[in-house]
Structures are given as C-alpha cells and as structure tokens.
C-alpha cells in the first residue's frame, strides 16, 4: 500500500514538473546574469518590462560580474551585467552598454565618532598603515578593516579608484554587500564599503574628502567612489535584447533606477 502511494506521489511530482515546463513555452525569453549589485534593480526593471511586453520572458540571474562576463562570452546569458571600473581584457570581445552608475560608500558603526575620511586615510587604513581610530580623528580603538573577497566587482572598483591598495592581511573578508553591512553594524570599530543603494540606519556612511555620498553629488561628479554598471552583449544588441536595454535606458527605466537608489547613466 505504501509503495503504491509513493508511486502516485512520484507521478504527481513528475506531471507537475512537466506542467511547469509547458507554461514557459510559447514565450520568447532572454537571460541576463552577473553583478549582484545590479541584480535587484535588473529584476525590478525586468518585471516592468515584462508587464509591458507579455510575450517576452526576462530571466535575471546573479553570480557576480565575472560570471556576467563569462556567461555573455559563452552565450549562457544574452546579457552579462558587470559593475567594474575597468573591464577585464576578455570583455573586449563584448559590446558594452553603460546603463547606470553606483556609488560605493564607506560605512562605519553609528557609535563611531568619525564623520569623514580623506582618500589617503582610507588608503592607509586598508593598507594597514593606520590601525587605530585615534589617528584619523576617532576614539582610541583598534580599527577592524572589512573588505570583500578577491574577484568581487565592488572590491576591484574600490581598489581601482582608491589606488595603491595592498589589503592588510588581518582584514576581515565578507562575501556580499549585505554581510559587510551586518559586520559593520555589529562591530563598533569596523569600517567597510558597500553599494550606495544599500545604506540603512544600522550603519553610518562617511564623507570622502568632505563630500557625502548622495545622488546629487554623484551626478555633479564630485563624489569620487563611483563605478559604472555595464550590460554586455556578444555583438551589438538586437531584437528582444535590444528592446530590453533600450527600455532600461528610456526615461521610465532610468527613473526606476533612480527611485531605487542607483544613479542613472545620464
């Protein structure tokens, strides 16, 4: 009796899976993969795009900038999303469309007295030359440096813009914007950097060279830690892919980007 039920269950599961597959049929689909910083925005844009174009299915995947470049090259995705200041040499074979900008913001714990740092101070802290908050205008506490893993788009953009960083070995490494934010929120002596769209009230953003990381300052070009977000395609975008990229670059698309905390390309 028991085996009969199990058999029925398997049949039911099997047909459910088949049904799911059948539903996807009849719609054209495009896939975008890559940058986890842009992923939530891409998902929102895809939802709006699909509402306007019900016959096209847009699938958004994460994986990171390197995965974005890789899957655009291999054809695993129609669009690769990358958030790097300098695209790696292998991305030269791809056509890039500049769709948005993202500020990288230095964050500390709200208990920290320091309000801002200079670029040189940030460099010294990440290189391990300055190890105590009192040397940069804070209390007498050791600095816990929080960085990202090697290969992260946020980290490579950060290191490219700040320049001459050889991350100190004691630095704590976290594997996403979210966990960096969580670590800094939990540690009164920590400093980290995250995407501008992810600031919340558990951490405090720092001004750099006296300029706060706000949409206005980034648009004026005064805030320095800014990286571009590229959509990469093999060859110039055509058909549905072009429609989607054009939608992101349209006023509606750019407004969505702005409303959710990123900075529009134009």
């Amino acid at each position: 009796m028991k085996t009969k039920n199990l058999f029925k269950l398997i049949i039911a599961l099997f047909s459910a899976t088949m049904l799911l597959f059948a539903c996807g049929k009849g719609r054209r689909s495009i896939t975008a993969a890559g940058s986890t910083a842009f992923q939530p925005f891409a998902e929102k844009l895809a939802d709006q795009f699909m509402a306007a174009n019900p016959d096209i299915n847009v699938i958004i995947q994460g994986g990171g900038s390197a995965v974005g470049i890789q899957s655009a090259l291999s054809g695993a995705a129609n669009i690769g999303m990358a958030d790097l200041v300098i695209l790696p040499p292998e991305a030269k074979a791809l056509v890039s469309s500049f769709v948005a900008r993202d500020g990288i913001v230095m964050i500390v714990n709200p208990k920290n007295q320091v309000k801002g740092l200079t670029l040189q101070q940030i460099r010294d802290i990440y290189n391990g030359k300055v190890e105590n908050w009192k040397d940069v205008g804070g209390g007498d506490n050791p600095i816990t440096v929080v960085s990202r893993e090697a290969g992260s788009g946020t980290r490579s953009s950060f290191e490219t813009i700040v320049e001459n960083i050889k991350l100190k070995k004691e630095a704590v490494v976290q594997d996403s914007n979210g966990t960096v934010r969580e670590t800094v929120a939990n540690d009164a002596n920590a400093i980290g950097y995250i995407s501008h769209g992810l600031i919340n009230d558990k951490i405090r953003p720092l001004a750099i060279n006296g300029i706060a990381c706000t949409t206005e300052e980034i648009l004026k070009g005064r805030y320095i830690l800014v990286r571009p977000i590229f959509l990469l395609t093999r060859g110039a975008p055509v058909g549905d892919v072009k429609m989607f990229i054009d939608y992101i670059l349209s006023k509606e698309g750019q407004d969505t980007i702005k409303a959710n905390g990123l900075i529009p390309a134009k």
């Binding site: 390197a66 890789q70 893993e149 788009g153």
Partner: peptide
Amino acid sequence: IALEMGYATGMH
C-alpha cells in the same frame, strides 16, 4: 572555495 567561486574565472 565558497567565498570566491562566484566571481572566479580562468586561473583563479
């Protein structure tokens, strides 16, 4: 492995 797999390409 788990930290860097998502971003790694080539030799990395």
